[in-house]
C-alpha cells in the first residue's frame, strides 16, 4: 500500500461534502414538489448553498495538495 494520509483526509472531506450536497439537492426537490411556483427562487438558493458546502471540500483538497 502506497499513498499519503492527506488523500484519506481529502476523501473524508469529499464524503462530508457529498452528503451535504445530497441533502441540499434532496430537500430542494421536496420543496419544488411542494411549491412548484417557487422553482426559480429554490433553484438559485440551492446552487448557492451547494457552492458554499463545496467550498469546504475545495479547501480540504488544497490542503491535501500543500501538506
Amino acid at each position: 500500500m502506497t499513498g499519503s494520509i492527506t488523500a484519506l483526509g481529502l476523501a473524508l472531506a469529499a464524503i462530508g461534502a457529498g452528503i451535504g450536497i445530497g441533502q441540499i439537492g434532496g430537500r430542494a426537490m421536496d420543496a419544488i414538489a411542494r411549491q412548484p411556483e417557487a422553482v426559480g427562487d429554490i433553484r438559485a438558493n440551492m446552487i448557492l448553498t451547494a457552492a458554499l458546502v463545496e467550498g469546504a471540500a475545495l479547501i480540504a483538497m488544497v490542503l491535501s495538495f500543500i501538506l
Partner: peptide
C-alpha cells in the same frame, strides 16, 4: 479571504 479563495478554487477545480 476565504470567500474569493474558494471562488478561485471552485472554477479551477
Amino acid at each position: 479571504f476565504i470567500k474569493p479563495f474558494t471562488l478561485m478554487l471552485r472554477l479551477f477545480a
